[in-house]
Amino acid sequence: MAITIAAFSGSLRKDSFTTKLIKAFKELAPEDVTVDIIDISQLPLINQDLEINLPQAVKQLHNSIEQADAVLLATPEYNRSYSPVLKNALDWGSRPEGQSKWKSKPVAVLGCTPYQLGAFGAVHHLRQVLTYLDMPAMQQPEFYLGKASDKFNGEGKLTDQETKDLIIQFWDAYIIWINKIN
């Protein structure tokens, strides 16, 4: 059965390790899985006044979520929390009030950082929000990529075989989770 994943990187930086990780997940996805990397860089800051006439970027976000069977969120860590751009996308996806596009979408969370802990704090803070959004989050296996700068080459390709193996194992569990929820 074909599955479409809406994948989000919580970093806008040009050479973002988080975006490189999302791209590695896309490259290592099972054959019957399509990973659409959603650009959240053009979303305006959340502003209820804009709900009267939703901006095109928000409409595109809503459409991407609606078309997806599941969601993959990757976040760096900022001050022990997930990124503000990811929060903005989550907020827009839940608006206007009562019209959340996230509801019941199976989700998996990835943490990525050049530091040791792999964005542990960010992932756990993000999971709190996902509970409120009524998104069933896969609990195990967890995925934290620490020391990300050592895992990619100069072209942004994942070169660490251990991380590749973990991604493949993660996909196996995530596909089972998606099918269970859907």
Rank of each mutant, 00 (worst) to 15 (best):
A74I: 02
P84R: 10
R13P: 00
Q99V: 06
T4Q: 12
K103D: 08
L130W: 10
Q161H: 00
A68Q: 14
L126I: 12
Q56A: 15
D165G: 00
L72K: 06
L166K: 10
D134E: 15
S16L: 05
K101Q: 14
W177Y: 14
S149L: 04
D32G: 08
E155R: 13
R127W: 07
A137Y: 00
A122Y: 01
K20F: 08
Y174G: 01
T131K: 00
E97L: 11
P106T: 10
K147E: 04
W171V: 04
G98N: 05
Q139Y: 09
K105P: 06
L130P: 10
G154L: 02
G146C: 01
L126R: 09
H124R: 14
G121V: 02
G154I: 04
Q139C: 04
V85A: 07
V85K: 01
Y115D: 12
R80L: 12
F17A: 07
L126E: 11
S100L: 12
D160C: 05
L12Y: 10
S64T: 07
N53E: 15
F25D: 05
K164L: 02
N182R: 14
I38Q: 13
S83V: 04
T75M: 01
K23I: 07
T34E: 12
P55F: 01
G10F: 03
E162D: 07
S16R: 03
E155I: 05
D39P: 07
Y132S: 12
K26R: 15
E27S: 12
Y132M: 12
L72W: 04
S81L: 11
G156D: 10
E66L: 09
Q99S: 11
D36L: 09
A7V: 12
T19K: 15
A119E: 04
L117W: 06
S41P: 03
T18G: 06
V107A: 11
Y82S: 00
V123L: 02
L130D: 10
Q99A: 11
D49P: 00
I176M: 09
Y174L: 07
F170D: 03
L158I: 02
W102M: 11
Y144T: 01
I3M: 11
V129P: 02
V71E: 02
S104Y: 14
S83M: 06
P30G: 12
N79H: 14
A7L: 13
L110T: 03
I176K: 15
T19R: 15
Y115V: 08
P44V: 06
A29Q: 05
Q56W: 08
Y78A: 04
P141Y: 00
I176S: 10
I3G: 03
D32N: 15
L133P: 05
